[in-house]
Write a protein that binds this DNA or RNA. Structure first.
Lengths: 336, 336
DNA sequence: CTGTTAGCGCCTTCAA
DNA sequence: TTGAAGGCGCTAACAG
């Protein structure tokens, strides 16, 4: 009744030894069917619970998995975590979720904490410019798996989407629908690969269609509605105003649309807008937003499987696997 | 470099004993300044990390806190968790977040897992009709703290908002602005107190203003956009159509508005709509939604403090504390 | 001030 | 098939 029953208690009651109880409980073969049954029954009666802490100390494996994301309250990260959960819980792992709030110091602290907690692996969508903190994970011999936001590191598997293609297809769609003066909002630290790649896709699409790349059309912001408004403020004070905006974030796209409408600029007739991530709200706005889907659920599941596969097959241990998912353009009303 | 340095390694190197190293590391007074310094330096040099698992086994305290919510990817729960994080991380606790996905069996499983993991406390927004699984937490002598969705249980503290008042103020606002045929959508299991109370507030407001309560105006649904549409479908096939809808969920309110607009019914001119929770999207829709704010960040912080206070002062141990926060009506465009 | 000892709960050799 | 013993890493008596 107390949750404090140990194998010794069972042993004492049954006049056997703790080792035997342990064997019975763990399906060890070297034990008589009779004692096994006896032990199992007693364990059930006494409401025995294995102490995972002791097991962890003994085995060196905690069955905890650490997850670090910028924020949990978006559909994107929520869904990735759901995918991780599905696969990892089924294998008996617990997930410890931590948020970096896009702060490098906070992320480093979370990493420290997870290492200290002896998690069996760390899944991270990293907000860090430096790999210093991440290197500590490897130094501690803890498997590290990137998803979405990865860093270039040896011996680390990753599951990402092809952000270059995402940026390319978004930009190409704008071009295909007649836009020529296409602005791009880098709605996050350009030091992060995802934003660099989306930007590169944008650049490449322009080049392939012989459209000049203009520095003044590329803005760097954070991922917030406010920043989207601010971006429009800047862009539409330029001598030559854009006729389309490709934002690397849905939230910034939303802010941009709001500000455009506030200025009585028609979306998409005068200006087309594309976001990124396919957050649910992009769909249920009156003026729904064209965006790029990143398949977060699948990303989570895949990341989990990559890890499980590494762990199960020791020969895969040091094989870094880079899975790249294809993004998908979702056409809605904010583009022509 | 390996993360496997123990106090014995340090002791050996320094020709002292592990106990002394432990003392030095833990700020014990009974130790000479000289040895303390020596140990601290060596520990740093050898990159010593305390093994939390061993500490947990020894002390019986894991420094893990379990949190169970229906879903993490809403602003409401995301913010509550942020509040919990702020307060608990500062005190050295790690947070394990689990999702019940509004499923009673899943919630029971999460509870089991957290108990097995020897968490020091469990914070829960419960989706369960029965208290059976929750009782196990108490049986295991683990402190339990409810937030938002509580159950009636002895010896359990809770932090909630006054859902009755929330329902009342929403309904009263509709009445005050001229609505008389007010429908209510119970957008979740009526077995849960929050939905019962919001409904009760609705009922009381009608009564206080001498408006008849009509069974056919009260619908039970899940919390999804689709269900909001379906609700309107039902309500507007009634002989006498409502002129207002109070939904206990923002998502259902959104679906309702979408369906009303699809039917060319003007919001709020013909039908006013109020949601609940103040999810961000209610604000940034073109037709922003009037709703009830629940102060989730404060809820999380408060819940954490209630627990910390109980733990710190043993005399508070068995005092259940019921904190009730006041909700706030947020006026927007979906009501007159 | 420091060392010795024991034990948290479990599992796993090694013997018997 | 079972028991005895040791150890995972740490801390807290108890001695000295």
């Amino acid at each position: 009744m107390n949750g404090k029953v140990t194998i010794y208690d069972i042993a004492k009651k049954l006049n056997i030894t703790a080792a035997t109880v342990s064997r019975a409980l763990n399906g060890n073969q070297n034990i008589s069917e009779k004692t096994r049954k006896m032990v199992l029954e007693a364990a059930h009666e006494m409401n025995y619970k294995q102490n995972k802490l002791a097991l962890a100390l003994k085995s060196g494996r905690s069955n905890y998995i650490g997850v670090i994301v910028p924020r949990i309250n978006t559909n994107f990260f929520g869904s990735v975590i759901r995918g991780l959960e599905e696969e990892l819980n089924a294998k008996g792992f617990n997930i410890i979720i931590t948020q970096s709030h896009n702060d490098e110091a906070m992320e480093a602290k979370n990493i420290e904490t997870l290492i200290d907690s002896h998690v069996d692996a760390i899944f991270i969508s990293s907000s860090s410019k430096s790999s210093k903190a991440l290197q500590k994970v490897l130094d501690a011999k803890i498997p590290l798996i990137f998803f979405d936001r990865r860093k270039i590191m040896d011996n680390v598997s990753s599951v990402t989407i092809d952000d270059f293609t995402g940026g390319y297809m978004a930009t190409k769609h704008l071009i295909d629908t007649g836009c020529r003066k296409i602005a791009h909002i880098v709605s996050g630290p350009i030091e992060l690969e995802i934003f660099r790649e989306r930007h590169r896709g944008y650049q490449q699409a322009l080049e392939d269609h012989h459209i000049e790349y203009r520095k003044e059309y590329v803005l760097k912001t954070n991922s917030s509605i406010e920043e989207g408004k601010r971006a429009v403020d800047i862009l539409f004070n330029l001598p030559e105003k854009p006729d389309a905006i490709f934002s690397a974030s849905d939230f910034v796209a939303l802010g941009a649309i709001q500000e455009l409408q506030a200025r009585n600029i028609k979306v998409p007739e005068e200006v087309s807008v594309i976001g990124f991530a396919n957050e649910p709200f992009t769909d249920f706005l009156e003026l729904s937003i064209t965006t790029v889907d990143q398949f977060p659920l699948e990303m989570g599941r895949t990341a989990a499987r990559v890890y499980l596969n590494q762990e199960t097959n020791p020969e895969n241990k040091n094989i870094q696997k880079k899975v790249v998912l294809e993004p998908k353009l979702i056409l809605r009303k904010s583009t022509r």
